[in-house]
Amino acid sequence: MSKETILVVCPGRGTYNAPELGYLARHHRGSEWLARFDALRADADKAPLSALDGAAKFSPALLRGENAAPLIHACAYLDFLSLDRDRFEVVAVTGNSMGWYTALACAGAVSPEHGFAIADGMGVNSQKHLPGGQAVLVLAGEDWTVDPALLRAVEAAMARHGVLPSIRLGGMLVVAGDNAALDALERDLPALARPPMRLVGHGPFHTPLMQASSDAARAQFPVSWFGRPEVPLIDGRGKVWRRFESAPQELWDYTFGQQILAPYDFTAAMTVGIREFAPDRVVLLGPGETLGGAIGQVLVALKWLDISSRNVFSARQGEDAFLIGMGRPSQRGIVIP
């Protein structure tokens, strides 16, 4: 029997919240790789992931970048290892923002140990940046389509106040800048479906304000850790890194240069993944499922499988889910043995 093809998506920051507490214990208790990750944390005098995941109560203060990043990476990577390879063939891997580091490991461009070390280390040095933060702008309407005139008006307001695009996320736009610029932008925006949401504890990721983080990463992580991906890897520009066409030096340079300092276009990555690889399904690794809406909005924009609105997407998901969220209990069993 032929295997179903899947495009794998790795989540980024903000996906491990109170409902996800205990995710590793529920799904990956006894995992050999979890024990290795815990040992690496212990060797560095850091709290083991099992202890963070096993806390009696969720604590946003405890799960800041230096702890959230490796925790999310471990949940996603162990989900990836649990996929039923007898039934599913991974045709490409991508990720959103911090999920790029997980995608590197899933695609085999770095080893599991090095992938974890990168995610863990970037959770720390991503806090090295000039003053500023991020805000989420919801551009899509109730039907998940975006009015081009609204987008132009938002981009004009951003230009007036020096606010930069950070992440393009389906029908949402994450923007970044210093706090005064973000305040001014919020007062100058056209009416949106929802008020802008400032992301607490986030820096101005994916902008030139992150130069200190980029410099720290280049000094910390050697080029020798990088190899050629075993499966196609789609970056935050929509570029596909293929096994025999990828130079490890260039992949390292992108990861710790442009990937940190330039906008991350998750919409482009998903568009390329859907159009070029035409997977039978898309699998969103856990924890959480906050990227599900953004992926659905990309499908609506592409009108993929005749999915032209939020209602059509929901109906399709109810009949035969094209998007499988491993953080959703009702869907997780579809892709694991």
Rank of each mutant, 00 (worst) to 15 (best):
Ala191Phe: 00
Pro196Lys: 04
Met197Lys: 14
Arg198Met: 03
His202Ser: 14
His206Leu: 06
His206Asn: 11
Pro208Ala: 00
Met210Asn: 06
Gln211Asp: 09
Arg218Ile: 11
Gln220Met: 07
Pro222Lys: 10
Val223Met: 07
Val223Cys: 12
Ser224Met: 03
Pro229Glu: 11
Pro232Ser: 07
Pro232His: 08
Ile234Asp: 09
Ile234Met: 09
Asp235Ile: 04
Gly236Met: 02
Gly238Arg: 05
Gly238Gln: 02
Lys239Pro: 05
Trp241Ala: 02
Arg243Trp: 02
Glu245Thr: 12
Ser246Asn: 00
Ala247Trp: 11
Glu250Gly: 00
Glu250Phe: 00
Leu251Ser: 02
Tyr254Cys: 04
Tyr254Arg: 04
Tyr254Phe: 09
Tyr254Leu: 06
Gln259Asp: 13
Gln259Tyr: 00
Gln259Val: 08
Gln259Phe: 08
Ile260Trp: 04
Ala269Gln: 10
Thr271Ile: 11
Ile274Arg: 07
Arg275Asn: 14
Ala278Met: 10
Pro279Arg: 09
Asp280Ile: 05
Arg281Pro: 13
Arg281Tyr: 01
Val282Cys: 12
Val283Ser: 06
Val283Ala: 03
Glu289Lys: 02
Glu289Met: 08
Thr290Leu: 09
Thr290Asp: 06
Gly292Met: 10
Gly293Gln: 08
Gly293Asn: 09
Ala294Met: 07
Ile295Pro: 13
Leu299Arg: 12
Ala301Leu: 03
